[in-house]
Write a protein that binds this DNA or RNA. Structure first.
Length: 480
DNA sequence: GGGGCAATAT
DNA sequence: CATATTGCCC
């Protein structure tokens, strides 16, 4: 997916004029609409829907960020209202949103003029600066994948008439390169001449020549700096599994552990595997075998998983933090401009990039999981986990207590560590409650020698599903 | 041995 | 400083 972020500066998310410019986008454009103001959301939504766009509304960044980060939905356009009304300037307050858009949607911010001359990004970025007030950010005229890469980068422009446009754009590989890539490119910093070169299936030879890197290569990214000339790139079909390793037999220089470059493509595979596995099954070893990326070790995945989980948590925390703003340092230049700086993000358009149903896979809690406890598991925010065509996020959680939300968050996302300040219920109380609920399948280990420990907010060494489901019941009582 | 976490390294 | 690696504990 590709999108741009466009900061505008009207109080409302979008003025009449601005909306007019949006009318010519293709039908079915998937719009993420984020605005705290319920009325604005409603109005915007109806307007957009009149234009035959598919609108997903969010009144809280947390949810929007989650939707983005967990890739619940593929959005073409994001219209985001900055929530901070004072203090920070727009770009600062929007940071989490932008960051999420960037990182989770795999946009690659590049310094303004730092156009790396010869490095072909795996996912070329196109950036179009939007200067004209009120006009829709130009749409790149449906750039085809063949479009030569344009100026890359992220622009943040503050012009005099209070337009703060941040235009991000990239092209995501529209093709669903379905699991063909089964090797990981690792890089090491000393000269490793022994590169395993294998011809891949479609008659194309992949090699390590940095100068000859093709941008459509899913995982060929070379470090901009030339300090890593010896990038080992292996590629193989499913059949030859050990093909990448055989070279190590003779060469000792290759023994060194090579740093795994988690390219967006690799990360995508990772995400895919994680999604496919679900929360309780998303463990390194399974992810590893699902990714089928040659050369990737379980440790690599474990590490990446760790980072990924932390990012997930960060996103959630940032969302809550913003809902509970703390006093801003009275510093420096108070922007007397419009306090709200809405952000619009929209993609370059691929006529052949109609989102497919497969992209709507729910990230962490696949539908059909936890069938028994679906009713208890379901969050008010994710009613029924329907297909995105039919569901919409609950517009507004209301003026809920922050603590309540934190609790719900913890319950709904038990795979995440508990937020700071929220302690899990004591093991005893959980066990007690479980037994009172007639859940007798849990204690096999518990009755044994060792007593379960808390990992994050779930018990270990008990059947995951049971404890997770049970905890939904238990926690509601005991957290409060 | 594997998962998770934290320290360490780059 | 972010990210990947390594080590340690269970």
């Amino acid at each position: 997916m590709s999108l741009r972020v466009h900061d505008a500066t009207s109080e409302m998310v979008c003025t009449e004029n601005e909306l007019l410019g949006w009318k010519d986008f293709p039908k079915g454009l998937r719009v993420l609409l984020l605005d705290q103001d319920q009325n604005s959301v409603s109005e915007m939504r109806s307007r957009l829907e009149e234009m035959d766009y598919i609108v997903y509304t969010f009144c809280n960044e947390n949810e929007a960020l989650y939707a983005i980060s967990s890739k619940l939905e593929v959005f073409h356009v994001a219209i985001v209202e900055a929530f901070h009304s004072g203090g920070k300037n727009g770009s600062e307050s929007l940071k989490p949103v932008k960051e999420s858009l960037l990182s989770m949607l795999e946009l690659h911010p590049v310094k303004h003029e730092a156009d790396n001359e010869n490095s072909n990004e795996a996912e070329p970025l196109t950036s179009v600066e939007e200067n004209q007030k009120g006009s829709p950010p130009c749409y790149d005229k449906y750039p085809a994948p063949s479009t030569p890469q344009q100026k890359q980068g992220v622009r943040s422009v503050d012009d005099a008439d209070f337009q703060d446009h941040t235009v991000l754009s990239t092209e995501q590989d529209s093709g669903v390169h379905e699991g063909d890539t089964k090797s990981v490119e690792t890089t090491c910093c000393d000269s490793v001449a022994e590169t395993t070169v294998l011809a891949d299936s479609p008659g194309r030879l992949e090699h390590d020549s940095a100068a000859d890197q093709k941008m459509e290569d899913p995982i060929a990214t070379c470090s901009r700096s030339n300090d890593c000339p010896g990038s080992v790139s292996t590629r193989s079909a499913d059949t030859n599994k050990a093909s990448g390793l055989h070279s190590s037999s003779g060469t000792k220089t290759n023994k060194k552990k090579m740093k795994v470059d988690w390219t967006p493509e690799l990360h995508k595979k990772f995400i895919k595997a994680v999604e496919q596995l679900g929360t309780d099954q998303a463990i390194p070893s399974r992810i590893l075998e699902l990714m089928k990326v040659e050369g990737l070790t379980r440790h690599n995945i474990a590490s990446h998983l760790q980072k990924f989980r932390m990012q997930q948590r960060q996103i959630l925390l940032k969302g809550d933090e913003k809902r509970w703003p703390r006093p801003q340092p009275r510093d420096s230049v108070q922007r007397t401009y419009y306090p709200h700086k809405p952000v619009m993000a929209f993609p370059t358009y691929h006529s052949n990039h109609a989102p497919t149903a497969g992209q709507f896979y729910l990230a962490w809690i696949p539908p059909g999981s936890y069938l028994n406890g679906a009713h208890t598991w379901g969050s008010p925010y994710y009613p029924g986990w329907q297909l995105p065509e039919t569901w919409h996020w609950k517009p507004h959680p209301g003026a809920e207590e922050v603590i309540d939300k934190a609790v719900k968050e913890a319950i709904n996302k038990p795979w995440l560590p508990l937020p700071l300040g929220l302690k899990p219920p004591s093991t005893e109380s959980v066990l007690d409650a479980l037994s009172k609920q007639g859940i007798s399948t849990v204690p096999p280990r518990i009755n044994g020698s060792r007593r379960p420990r808390w990992h994050g907010n779930r018990l270990s060494e008990v059947p995951q599903m049971e404890i997770v489901l049970s905890q939904v019941h238990v926690s509601l009582r005991h957290y409060r």
